[in-house]
Design a protein around this nucleic acid. Structure first.
Length: 211
DNA sequence: TAGGCCATCTGGTCCT
DNA sequence: AGGACCAGATGGCCTA
């Protein structure tokens, strides 16, 4: 039975930095080791930033006791790169959130919600353009935006609870093919070019729309 | 308190 | 060889 993570269970003082020190000493399963730098153990962690100091102690700690100093430094550099990579990824996700319709309840979209919402949003925008192109140019009918888009863009105070998609019809003749067959398709359209509630909702936890 | 979400570490794999 | 990418594992935080 593998028990290399037992230090995580016995003390909050563990962490990879602790365990790297342990790697040097070869006593990896002793979280109370005096070499442990964790702040909760009375010693500040050797982390570059305050944020890292706060979040350092998350994650799994592994101890094999055979890692050399060179490997340890390499691992630390790799951890740093990985951290930066994930931060960049999160920054990109924040940028994506910033261009998506916001909600007054100020609830931050989760990562998966952001991606799904963006997927649906792009698709809805595409549909709006397509429908607009199909309309006679002299038409004076106002709603060029899909209901969902008009809500997302124009409605002053939509919320996850108050908004909903119209859910009347069923077919989606105007939808891209992937919308009908691919389970990842963002939404289906009814005969009026409205995004259908149930379909959209199945791909987003909430429904950003009008009505 | 359970479950969801998240940040982080870690080792493996692929690429340059 | 080293960096990027990925998935698994783990603990912390928050909410219903």
């Amino acid at each position: 039975m593998e028990t290399v993570y037992s230090d995580m269970d016995t003390s909050s003082c563990d962490y990879s930095f602790t365990h790297t020190d342990d790697e040097d000493s070869g006593s990896s399963l002793h979280p109370a080791s005096p070499s442990s730098p964790s702040s909760s153990c009375g010693k500040p962690p050797a982390s570059p930033t305050e944020l890292q100091q706060k979040k350092r102690r998350r994650g799994r700690a592994r101890n094999d006791g055979t890692v050399h100093v060179v490997k340890k430094n390499r691992r630390m550099k790799a951890n740093d790169r990985e951290r930066n990579r994930m931060h960049n990824l999160n920054d990109a996700l924040d940028s994506l959130r910033s261009v998506l319709p916001a909600f007054p309840d100020d609830t931050k979209l989760t990562k998966i919600e952001t991606l799904r919402f963006a997927h649906n949003y792009i698709w809805a925008l595409s549909e709006t353009i397509r429908i607009a192109d199909q309309r006679p140019s002299k038409s004076r009918d106002p709603p060029l935006l899909l209901p969902g888009l008009s809500c997302m863009v124009d409605t002053p105070s939509p919320s996850r609870d108050s908004c909903s998609w119209p859910s009347s019809a069923s077919s989606s003749s105007s939808s891209p093919s992937y919308c009908n067959s691919d389970p990842s398709s963002p939404a289906a359209m009814d005969d009026y070019g409205y995004l259908q509630t149930d379909v959209v909702y199945s791909y987003t936890k909430f429904v950003p729309t009008i009505y």
